[in-house]
């Protein structure tokens, strides 16, 4: 079975400053601390559990800047079989539609005959949850969103539970299929020491092109399968008009950081008289009572 997991390195949105955005309204990723998108870790864990139960080859793909190789290494530590860094300046500024087209083309180029594609429900930087379903549409495969559990995989069919607006559903579908995995549905396994020690020195093709790396180093890395392949624009088949900022239907018109505008506040002392007065006021304004 071939499983593809799509992951993203995201800014840690708990600590974001005003310099987080560039003039053109896109994200200034360089200025931010980054993390493995939490829901994607749940997707990876679900894939590794399927692998343990049924046997599978788990490939992980991320699209992002060269630095995103970090989460690919983390995926290797946890048990991924193969990882790819999808990275090219031509991809920069892509919105969800353009991104889904690039990812679709990368999947087609690298993983022939996939059975299951898995992604986290949403990424914490944009919270859009759009890329998964858009890739499914572009690959012309069905999608099952908000998946909480894989009950069974058998004879090219999967039985899954998912969240719906009304509650939960058990659904059955044929593979190939794309799943988006609900956040927090499992406990992502920690890195394994053995794998960490093996892959801690893995390098992307970008890094291997740096000046200080010798031919001998390259040979060493390749022999030990420590090269993380980069997929760039020329490795995939995609119409350049439909990617990047220019190929994205949506534009960011403006951004402003959330500032607390002070409003007129009424102060009531925290004693019974004060509270009585406040309550009376609420009643007279027909807000309460």
């Amino acid at each position: 079975m071939e499983i593809v997991v799509l992951v993203k390195q995201v800014p840690d949105t708990a600590n974001v400053g005003a310099d987080a955005m560039k003039e053109d309204g896109t994200v200034n990723r360089a200025a931010l601390k980054t993390v493995f998108n939490p829901d994607d870790l749940n997707a990876l864990e679900m894939a590794l559990e399927i692998k343990e139960r049924y046997g599978a080859n788990v490939s992980v793909i991320t699209m992002g800047p060269p630095k995103a190789v970090e989460i690919l290494k983390e995926s290797l530590y946890r048990g991924a079989d193969k990882v790819y860094l999808l990275s090219d300046p031509k991809f920069a500024g892509s919105d969800t539609l353009a991104t889904s087209l690039i990812l679709k083309s990368a999947i087609e180029a690298k993983v022939k005959n996939f059975d299951i594609i898995m992604a986290g429900r949403q990424a914490i930087d944009g919270d859009t949850a759009q890329v998964g379903p858009q890739i499914a549409e572009k690959l012309n495969v069905p999608q099952v969103t908000f998946v909480t559990d894989v009950e069974e995989v058998k004879n090219g069919k999967m039985r899954l539970s998912r969240l719906s607006d009304e509650g939960t559903e058990i659904v059955e579908c044929k593979t190939p299929v794309l799943l988006t995995v609900e956040g927090g549905v499992n406990n992502p396994r920690p890195p394994r020491v053995k794998r960490l020690l093996k892959y801690v020195n893995a390098m992307s093709s970008f890094q291997m092109n740096e000046d200080w790396v010798t031919d001998e180093d390259v040979e060493y890395l390749k022999k030990r399968e420590l090269e993380i392949p980069v997929i760039s624009f020329c490795d995939i088949v995609v119409n350049p008009e439909y990617i990047g900022l220019a190929g994205s239907p949506t534009r960011v018109k403006e951004i402003h950081s959330v500032v607390f505008k002070s409003i007129e506040t009424k102060d009531y002392p925290a004693n019974q008289d004060g509270i009585n007065n406040m309550m009376k006021e609420l009643v007279s304004e027909h807000i309460i009572g």
């Binding site: 800014p11 949105t13 708990a14 974001v16 987080a20 955005m21 309204g25 994200v27 914490i124 930087d125 919270d127 949506t250 534009r251 960011v252 018109k253 403006e254 951004i255 402003h256 950081s257 959330v258």
Partner: peptide, 9 residues
């Protein structure tokens, strides 16, 4: 961005 910014698209 986790509610830190408001964007107009």
């Amino acid at each position: 961005f986790g509610g830190n910014i408001i964007a107009t698209i």
